[in-house]
């Protein structure tokens, strides 16, 4: 670990009371930030100061702070989750910023993710999409022995690659169309690859894509921004798989 350096920064952070109120960028000067702090710890320090000086803290979602729960996220200088590759906001550290830097912090922006307060958005549309088919229809109790159906390591690995999605919403925030295709495709792929998910694959793709449309997400126009910001590096190959499943559902199945 290097010497404990500190930096001064200027935050321009989005403040908005609620979904129906107009928001604005507020400038906050922040001094003596240790470069060993995580970005969220820097916000903690800012909030402590705001609290003690009689102002309202900046609200932001966060929970596990180890990059797996998918709760945190903000657009940092135009990049969802900040400038580093394959990283959630909670894993971004202040040593990545220079002394005197100005850092713009904004919430995910999408019609499908209304703002709750400051940097907090409502991502319940993602839950609605999963509810419309992101599962295998089986009840607890009747499962066959876990080794009854062998699955090749290659298929299991591909399914795991897709299943790694943490549902943070960065893909939507980065997409110029606010499309949720990467998110939808990750779940559709995971389950379509595995024998357990195959029986419902067509119905699932059809239903999840339609729910995505109804929730107000846009279409995919192959910008690949989603893949670039995804903290779990979910590949757009999954979108191709989703398109295949969706086409199959449209042409060959009995799905209404």
């Amino acid at each position: 670990m290097r010497e404990n350096d500190t930096i001064d920064i200027t935050l321009k952070v989005w403040r908005q009371k609620g979904a129906d109120v107009k928001g604005r960028l507020e400038t906050i000067d922040v001094k003596n930030i240790s470069t060993h702090m995580s970005f969220l710890e820097m916000l903690d320090v800012v909030n402590e100061d705001l609290t003690l000086t009689g102002r309202e803290p900046v609200e932001f979602d966060n929970d596990c702070r180890e990059g797996i729960c998918g709760m945190c996220g903000a657009v940092i200088n135009g990049h969802a989750h900040g400038p580093e590759k394959a990283m959630t906001l909670c894993q971004l550290h202040m040593r990545k910023f220079k002394n005197g830097a100005t850092i713009v912090v904004e919430p995910w922006r999408s019609r499908a993710f209304p703002i709750i307060k400051d940097l907090i958005v409502d991502r319940s549309a993602f839950d609605k999409i999963i509810q419309s088919g992101g599962y295998v229809s089986m009840n607890a109790g009747g499962a066959p022995d876990a080794n009854a159906i062998p699955i090749s390591q290659e298929i299991a690995d591909k399914a795991m690659d897709a299943a790694a999605c943490i549902g943070c919403g960065a893909c939507v925030a980065a997409c110029p169309n606010s499309s949720a295709m990467l998110f939808v495709s990750a779940k559709v792929s995971q389950l379509a690859l595995l024998p357990q998910g195959k029986p419902e694959a067509a119905q699932r793709a059809w239903s999840m894509v339609n729910t995505m449309d109804r929730c107000g997400f846009g279409n995919c126009s192959n910008e690949k921004e989603c893949e670039a910001v995804c903290p779990k590096e979910i590949s757009i190959v999954n979108i191709a798989r989703l398109n295949r499943e969706f086409l199959k559902a449209s042409f060959f199945s009995t799905v209404e």
Binding site: G141, A146, A163, Q196
Partner: peptide, 22 residues
């Protein structure tokens, strides 16, 4: 043991050996 059966049936992508078993 029932838990593993249940989770595999749900589509949990557990690690597998080359032969395809868990």
């Amino acid at each position: 043991t029932n838990i593993i059966d249940q989770c595999v049936a749900q589509g949990v992508p557990f690690a597998r050996d080359y032969g395809g078993l868990l």
